[in-house]
């Protein structure tokens, strides 16, 4: 999984990057808040981010606030890096949109455990998002069936949204799971038989 590490302080950043790589994460590093925000705005941006609270450029809480306001529903789990004592930072970080915290100096076992939490949240979010997309597609098809369908009074063909006339059974099988088996109703069978006899 891809992960963003944003910290201006080189010792912490290098340590984080080295450990994450060792754990087989694909790491993107940023030296300040502005570079971190630029990384998060890319279309292939990481869904996990470890962001330092105090950085030149954008601060960690500002990055959280912007991410929640501007990046929409895209899954993004943000872990804020803070000093051990800063309780008020944690409170305002959570209100700004952070998902979790890691205190400096970080402990590797704790870091790994928090990353697993993050991965779990991100994969659940992705699953939910895929499910929502599937449901929206299904709903769109149902809506097409429920709407006012233009039907030819004579041959019973249906005009679709693109303006093409298609046979009723073709239209229905495209917009639902219905399948058709062709047969004759009693009325048509009698009529057909009568015509056959007349022909003779």
């Amino acid at each position: 999984m891809k992960i963003l590490v944003a910290d201006d302080e080189p010792v912490t950043r290098t340590t984080l990057v080295a450990m994450l790589k060792k754990w087989h994460y694909e790491v993107v590093a940023a030296n300040d808040g502005d570079a971190a925000w630029a990384e998060l705005q890319r279309p292939d941006a990481p869904a996990l981010a470890i962001v330092d609270w105090n950085m030149p450029g954008l601060n960690g809480d500002e990055i959280c606030r912007r991410a929640r306001a501007e990046l929409g529903q895209r899954p993004l789990h943000i872990i804020l890096l803070t000093a051990k004592s800063a309780l008020e930072d944690k409170v305002s970080g959570l209100s700004a949109g952070a998902d979790d915290f890691l205190t400096k100096p970080f402990n590797s076992a704790e870091l790994r455990a928090r990353l697993r939490v993050g991965e779990r949240v991100v994969s659940l979010q992705k699953e939910l998002q895929d499910r929502v997309i599937q449901l929206e597609e299904a709903l769109a098809k149902v809506k097409e069936l429920q709407g006012l369908l233009p039907i030819c009074a004579c041959c019973k063909k249906i005009r679709d949204v693109k303006g093409y006339w298609t046979q009723l059974e073709v239209y229905l099988s495209h917009h639902s799971k219905a399948e058709f088996t062709h047969t004759y109703c009693k009325e048509c069978a009698d009529k057909f038989l009568r015509e056959l006899k007349l022909d003779r």
Binding site: E9, V11, T12, D52, N54, A83, K84, K104, P105
Partner: peptide, 10 residues
């Protein structure tokens, strides 16, 4: 603050 972060990490 920056120095403190580095020293704490060390």
């Amino acid at each position: 603050h920056t120095l403190k972060g580095a020293l704490a990490q060390l």
